[in-house]
Design a protein around this nucleic acid. Sequence first.
DNA 1: GAAGTAAAGTGAACACCGTTCATTTTGTCA
DNA 2: TGACAAAATGAACGGTGTTCACTTTACTTC
Lengths: 198, 198
Amino acid sequence: MARGKHTREEIRQLAIDVAEQCIVEHGMQGMNARHIAKEMGYAVGTLYQVFKSMDLLIFEVNMRSLLALEKKLRSAAQDATHCHAAIEAMVMRYVDYALQETNRWQTLFEHRLPEGVELPETYQKHRAQLFRLLEEQLKCAYPDKFDKDIALEARALWAGVHGICTLALLNKLDDDGLNIKDIVQTLLVRFNTVGGEV
Amino acid sequence: MARGKHTREEIRQLAIDVAEQCIVEHGMQGMNARHIAKEMGYAVGTLYQVFKSMDLLIFEVNMRSLLALEKKLRSAAQDATHCHAAIEAMVMRYVDYALQETNRWQTLFEHRLPEGVELPETYQKHRAQLFRLLEEQLKCAYPDKFDKDIALEARALWAGVHGICTLALLNKLDDDGLNIKDIVQTLLVRFNTVGGEV
DNA sequence: GAAGTAAAGTGAACACCGTTCATTTTGTCA
DNA sequence: TGACAAAATGAACGGTGTTCACTTTACTTC
């Protein structure tokens, strides 16, 4: 071992911290190796000894975002008194996340690792977990449905909400005078998950 | 006037042709000024006399994609015998477009003009037209609904389908063994637009 | 024809990007 | 102290988009 100011792991975390801040403030584009290195107080070379590429650094930020999102949704579900309310709460919490932490959310869904680089298993596990959270509540709401149908419903609803957020944030909804949350509510009504009766 | 091989407008169209081909074959990333210029048989400088920036060139390709998509959806609606069928046909045509012309479709929705550059009015008009096509059919399917509710329904359904396509193409649906079209059908069922009865 | 002119076309050059790697600095231990 | 290897460096490379002083060309006028 040599040099001592920070351990390898500390430098790694420092890099993720700085990258995260860049992304939150200026989006994925507003982040570059030289700027991050300078902000860390190290040279670019050091950054590259800890991350093979900038893509992998962005990925680590996305990992944090994913875990934070999962936590939010889980707590939304737990606070609800019954499954329909849980579904609505999770959906709304998701919309809030997209609207409030826009840059973080957009990076989470727009960034792609270069071809050939596979996502770590843990990442995929946590992403699948988001669907599972919804599936649990749907299973409770519709106990008679087959698992496969529950899976389909979960994906249709989740992707639907996601699509509304995507288009809304890109101003591609042509929604003069329409409230995003009203559009989401419209979708929720279609899934019979709004209005109260258990 | 001077020089004659091509008029300014011909060069413009030539550039869009080449850019379109690049995008179709390799996606938005697989396109760059030098390559396009070489393929056109001109120098980069000439390209920049016709397009202020590469972003505006991509935009022109997107304009073409948008018009093509609009045409497809319009014909899908016209071929249908009643409004529920029209809605289903349009949605499925949209999914086909996303799945078959993936690079074109992704560029259409992922590309953003730099801040400060506004979308031309004609573009916005055609994009709004996509929603209007769906609204027409929804209006026919649900004649008692208010216009505002129709607008909400159109956006919820459209964005929903869009979200499914987005996540499916990015492999972010965690859909082991699930068919994308089945997920879309699930969404359609929720909107009561599948199954036949008028 | 020749000279003049302005449009059309050029491509080297600039600034910035991710990435690499020969080189230097530094802490540790014999 | 000297030797060694890990840690850290930053100039350099190849790739972007973009610019603009310059050259080439076609047309007009004499």
